[in-house]
Amino acid sequence: MKIEIFGPGCQKCSAAEKIIKATLAELKNDAEVVKVTDIQEMVSRGVMFTPAVIIDGKKVCEGKVPTPDMIKGWLK
């Protein structure tokens, strides 16, 4: 499983990365986490509002820091 986190590096984006990594660790899930900071790539992937999360090519969240419950829901 590949989890991509999109964000130019603002507070909210690092918060999203942190909470996703913490939740993965809690679940002992070894999914690959990639941080995308390049704006051109962001736009060409259809992200206009950060932080956004794409899991295996599917956008699950855009413009907000996910909660642990939301993340657990995506991983099921």
Partner: peptide, 17 residues
């Protein structure tokens, strides 16, 4: 529409293109 200034650039490009 939800907006925060850190998203201004991707939003701008997304709109214009």
């Amino acid at each position: 529409t939800p907006f925060c200034s850190c998203s201004a650039v991707p939003l701008f490009i997304g709109f214009v293109t």
